[in-house]
């Protein structure tokens, strides 16, 4: 059982997955905040590798990516950051990156070095399952789980294909759109999750647009995990993390009382 699969061993425990852009607002900030997030109940850490053209991201994560790149963050540095984090915590780490930086480093080298750094999985939003054959083969050999995404408009045959290929969990995109905090989630989110459950037993985690305790609890009632990103990255800019941790504690509590 991979470290990622292990998170979902007890299906009554709802996983909290925290996304942050590596090296934003600084490398030190990333290294310091991750163990704190783990202490406050995050089960998986998603580390974003910044890319110049993040076309699935809304303004918050675009800006974080842009600012990390300006500060000189590279895929190589992200791998070092992950290795440093691995020394501090045992929590599963998933890299989220667009495909081009991976291609530029070389699929083999990227997968090997990520795995050696203690990274457990990869999530590549612009690499649908039908284009992923090559990296999938390499990732399996290197012991990395590739997590694939399902969208609300995915037809059944895609859901089956993706559920078959994904390892660790399935990333369910809550809405048709880009990342970013939203006031409300789609009204038919529960039906979407139920539709996917008919096709697979793999753990289902829902992300995009989730920024409040209420939204997270609603998702946790039907899914196995909740992914939070844009709001978290916004709160990283507060000086003492007080607001961030109060917010995380609220979400964790909400998920634990389901």
């Amino acid at each position: 059982m991979s470290r990622l699969e292990n998170v979902f061993k007890d299906r009554n425990h709802k996983a909290l997955i925290a996304f942050l852009t590596s090296g934003y607002p600084s490398i030190e900030a990333t290294l310091e905040i991750v163990p704190v997030l783990v202490e406050h109940g995050c089960d998986i850490i998603e580390l974003g590798i910044p890319f110049s053209d993040p076309l699935a991201d809304g303004v918050t994560l675009q800006n974080a990516s842009y600012s990390a790149l300006k500060a000189g963050i590279t895929p190589g540095k992200c791998i070092k950051i992950a290795a440093d984090i691995r020394k501090r915590v045992d929590t599963p780490i998933v890299f989220l990156t667009y495909y081009n930086p991976v291609l530029a480093m070389g699929l083999q080298k990227f997968c090997r070095e990520s795995a050696a750094a203690g990274v457990d999985g990869l999530l590549i939003p612009d690499l649908p399952v039908n284009e992923a054959e090559e990296i999938d083969e390499i990732a399996v050999k290197e012991g990395l789980d590739i997590v694939y995404m399902i969208a609300p408009n995915s037809p059944d045959y895609r859901i089956e294909m993706i559920a078959d290929k994904t390892r660790g969990f399935i990333y369910m995109v809550s809405l048709t759109g880009v990342t970013g905090a939203r006031d409300s989630l789609p009204s038919d989110l529960e039906q979407f999750v139920e539709r996917v459950k008919l096709k697979t037993n793999k753990p289902l985690c829902v992300g995009f647009g989730i920024s409040t305790e209420k939204q997270a609890t609603r998702v946790g009632r039907v899914a196995d995990g909740v992914i939070i990103g844009s709001r978290l990255v916004q709160l990283l800019n507060e000086p003492d993390n007080h607001e961030l941790l109060t917010w995380i504690d609220g979400i964790r509590k909400g998920l634990d009382t389901i």
């Binding site: 699935a56 612009d126 690499l127 649908p128 284009e131 399902i150 969208a151 408009n153 895609r158 048709t176």
Partner: peptide, 19 residues
């Protein structure tokens, strides 16, 4: 699948695949 030799393809988020 839209490949011109090694080029082309469909490198897009899953949401666009049905479209």
């Amino acid at each position: 699948f839209g490949h011109f030799g090694q080029y082309g393809g469909q490198f897009v988020p899953e949401t666009l695949i049905p479209a």
